[in-house]
Design a protein around this nucleic acid. Structure first.
Lengths: 338, 338
DNA sequence: CTGCGTAATATGAACGTTCATATCGCTGAG
DNA sequence: CTCAGCGATATGAACGTTCATATTACGCAG
């Protein structure tokens, strides 16, 4: 299709009987205009509904006011339940400062890095927002090498730009273990999923630190996958051992669901017979019976901090000197007992 | 920041000892080049990592290969659980045909329509993708009036462009009621939330049609809000009435969670004492006990159809003549009994 | 060996802005 | 009365493409 052309600066200028530059100034440097000219031009702009063409402006200025977010590939049957909330927060934060979010996905047969390069070379965006960042994330290395602005949800290596924001999961899980210790639990189990994502590792580290600090006996279990069946199998094993733990810390609410299911099958009452705490605060946790004690991610603060760092990098050319570690918020509910 | 300028067509042309146009042709009309020139130029493009500047290209051609998606405002504490999966599907479908998704959000103090106008006037995108479309959605009216391409997840009025895709919720709920009737249930309740969203209305219509068709006795209940407490209150009332229904159809999985909670409190066993069916197939439904019978939305088919319609409208200038109604997929699990 | 048709490549203009600079009109010092 | 100085507005060029058109190269009929 063609011909979706609209009102240009020239149209407005002609209508107002002034030059292009005057219109441009009315929008970008109003103090340069005589007040009456400004008023006349502004009204005309309003009336005609003139907006500078984004492409033309970008071509001249080299800036797009767009942030690329390479969306993690997700199983549509089992989507990351935090994605919606995170995107919501990011879009809102970016919108407040006049930026928009462009979702990115490598084309079939294209690598992550190639997809980034394409967008960089085509000058489509000003910066990247990365999430699910691994400790030695190739995307981070790539963007660092290219000298292209980015901000990361998840820590980056010390020799890379420290433009990251992360949740202090270690501390949060230590506190979770502390809650259990305070309630008199001695034997505590940790339920994680396989895979070495840094957030999983952090939660595991937090568990170990908490156990050590409170002198508890800790056991660790791994679920082989995310499916209900596999999960329940592991969990039942966990609950059946000779020295059954009196408390379980699940590395995610998702895993805690397996504990609920297994406990029901084993006739164990969560809250009374077994304390359970988890991580993520998925929306459904309040509906469980008993409701789940968990850690809420401060998604809005995370998003705001990420966008802030991004804008700073893009507009001032200054990379933040240090990452930002935000505390998780303990949400205490009956699943850990009274 | 400035100076993020990169390789231009001119650089490649100079390196290859040919003119701009030859480079342009290598990318856009390769058949015009002598095979050996093409090969030489292509290699050089590859080596230098040249990509046409998106802004310059858009400025000239008037097309952006970007689709705007005005994201529904969402409560971050209780985000729409289908959003992630829908976006995932949309990004994937759009990516396959070389389009990207730009998330849009009205600025503070800006109306939905103004936000659309801004993007249209600034020629930032080629088309809009709308979701959560109401029967007389002002955005649809606005885009129709502006003659701007869009596709809608949710039906539009007959006098508007029929570029929509929707789920045949009526039919799906009729089938749900059919399942219950086949199991001998006579008294069936319908649990909805307040608010007149078309999808809720469809599900209600489906319930009424199903009840009529099978000669059942139907009652309807409305939850005043989405909070666990309010929901459980209504649900308990539903379960306590003199003529307690033997089956419940919840208009969403979310509402069904209230039934699980209330049933537990009332000592009623779902599956055995009470059949329960719902709608949406949230990822957690398989973890419930007993697992929930529900209707799965064909998100990938929906996304593919929406993007297909959009591309057709943008590239051929042809608005589809009729909407597309996709069937929901019944997922039968133990909550409706054996 | 000229001239013609076509294939291959080159050139100028245009897309709609903004930047750098030029011009204009006016006030007030000399 | 002249003109420096300044505020207000105008003009030309440039950003990096692609389109329309021009130019060149080449094979071949006459």
């Amino acid at each position: 299709m063609a011909a979706r052309r609209g009102i240009t600066i020239e149209d407005v200028a002609r209508a107002a009987g002034v030059s292009r530059q005057t219109i441009s100034n009315a929008l970008n440097a109003p103090q340069r205009l005589k007040p009456e000219t400004l008023e006349r031009v502004t009204r005309l702009i309003e009336e005609l509904g003139y907006r500078p063409d984004q492409s033309a402006r970008s071509l001249k200025s080299g800036t797009r006011r767009i942030i690329a977010y390479p969306t993690p590939v997700d199983d549509p049957a089992n989507p990351n339940p935090l994605m919606g909330g995170f995107l919501e927060a990011v879009v809102a934060s970016a919108g407040e400062v006049g930026y928009r979010i462009l979702l990115l996905r490598p084309r079939p047969g294209q690598s992550q890095e190639q997809a980034l390069d394409e967008v960089i070379a085509a000058r489509t965006v000003d910066a990247f927002l990365l999430s699910d960042v691994m400790r030695d994330d190739p995307r981070v290395a790539h963007l660092t090498a290219a000298g292209f602005p980015f901000a990361a949800f998840g820590r980056t290596m010390p020799d890379q730009p420290q433009s990251w924001v992360d949740v202090d999961s270690v501390q949060a899980v230590i506190e979770l273990v502390g809650l259990l210790a305070a309630r008199g639990h001695r034997r505590v189990a940790f339920l994680a999923s396989v895979g070495a994502q840094p957030w999983m590792e952090d939660r595991r580290d937090g568990f170990r630190a908490g156990v050590r600090r409170h002198g508890l006996v800790g056991q660790e279990f791994s679920a082989p996958g995310d499916g209900p069946a596999e999960l329940v199998t592991v969990t039942r094993e966990l609950l059946r051992g000779r020295n059954r733990p009196t408390a379980v810390v699940a590395a995610g609410d998702w895993l805690a669901l397996g504990v609920y299911a297994a406990a029901r099958e084993e006739g164990i009452e969560i809250g009374a017979d077994l304390a359970l705490a988890a991580f993520d605060d998925l929306p459904l946790t309040a509906f469980l019976h008993p409701a789940l004690t968990t850690v809420r991610l401060p998604l809005q603060r995370i998003a705001r901090a990420l966008i802030g760092r991004l804008i700073q990098t893009v507009e001032d050319g200054a990379t933040p000197q240090a990452g930002l570690l935000l505390p998780g918020e303990l949400v205490i509910r009956p699943s850990i007992g009274p």
